[in-house]
């Protein structure tokens, strides 16, 4: 039972991270129907910029005096950086192809993904880069269950971001514009919503969330690598499809399920095959519900 609860906590942590990445896939897909293969690279870039900033602050000595402030600044700057990157990538690689076949845009995304991960490798080196210091060491012990402070931070941050995104998409004017663009680009441009701006915004938000996930994964596992975006990227994409691609609530749910399945599969069945379970669940769910758990065309939640 204790093992079960411990795994449940780990599963929630990992699932939340997958959900953050999956949101970027699902939002971009909702707006321009493109599988953005470069999204995993935004996540990896986030991890790298996070480690650069945190080491910089540690080098300056601020990390010991104001750890929370440094962490918050790193998060904000990294998310901004990745948003900036994503908007540019969209303008260069996807925008000119919007009227072409979807496979052309897909291939362009694949090329961009290769380009970005190799760019990271060239500027940051081939080896793992370690996150600095003893951030959030220790945790709360409840009987035999340990909840790390880091895990609490990750779950808290994830909930905060997901909540913020929900408010942005469903309660604000900008969110309404985004939903309108996702439903019908022509019609929404008739009521003077600039679809280009909305698409840029979507990329920026998605990449920002992925960047936050990147830092948290870096903190959680202690290091980052230039090719770390690939597998989480694919699993997050699986999560987005599992929940019903284009559906925000679905992506959150899908991410949580994929994370849980992975952790429980690794804990109870086999650690070697942990990457398989996520895909098996995905395939079996899609077999019975071909448009994902939440369905893809619930118009109101589609961004």
């Amino acid at each position: 039972m204790e093992f079960f609860i411990q795994q449940l906590i780990n599963g929630i942590t990992l699932g939340g991270l997958y959900a953050l990445i999956a949101l970027g896939y699902t939002m971009v897909y909702g707006v321009i129907q493109l599988i953005n293969f470069a999204h995993g690279e935004f996540f990896a870039t986030g991890g790298y910029v996070g480690v650069i900033l945190l080491s910089f602050f540690t080098g300056l000595g601020y990390m010991d005096t104001h750890p929370i402030l440094c962490l918050a600044a790193s998060f904000a700057l990294t998310m901004g950086y990745c948003a900036f990157l994503a908007v540019g990538v969209e303008k260069i690689a996807y925008k000119p192809l919007r009227r072409q076949s979807r496979l052309a845009a897909l291939l362009s995304a694949l090329g961009m993904s290769i380009f970005l991960s190799n760019g990271l490798m060239l500027t940051q080196g081939v080896y793992d880069k370690a996150y600095p210091g003893e951030l959030f060491q220790g945790g709360v012990n409840l009987g035999n269950i340990t909840i790390g402070y880091l895990q609490m931070m990750i779950v808290g941050m994830t909930i905060f971001l997901l909540f913020g995104l929900n408010i942005l998409v469903f309660k604000t004017k900008i969110g309404m514009a985004m939903r309108a663009t996702a439903q019908d680009k022509v019609m929404s441009s008739l009521v003077s919503i600039s679809s280009n701006r909305i698409i840029s915004l979507t990329f920026a938000i998605g990449a920002g969330l992925a960047a936050a996930a990147g830092i948290m994964v870096g903190l959680y596992y202690g290091s980052v690598r230039y090719d770390m975006g690939f597998l989480p990227g694919i699993k997050a994409f699986a999560a987005a499809v599992l929940g019903g691609i284009g559906n925000i609530t679905g992506a959150m749910l899908g991410g949580l399920i994929i994370g849980m399945v992975e952790i429980f599969g690794a804990g109870y069945i086999s650690g070697q095959y942990k990457d398989v379970f996520a895909f098996i669940i995905l395939i079996s769910v899609l077999y019975f519900k071909p448009t994902g758990i939440m369905g893809e065309n619930i118009d109101d939640t589609r961004v």
């Binding site: 192809l97 072409q100 362009s108 694949l110 090329g111 380009f115 970005l116």
Partner: peptide, 16 residues
């Protein structure tokens, strides 16, 4: 790096 970039460029100029 060049390979990835040329994939993007090729698609931009010859999408079909």
């Amino acid at each position: 790096l060049v390979f990835g970039m040329s994939m993007v460029v090729m698609m931009l100029f010859r999408p079909a």
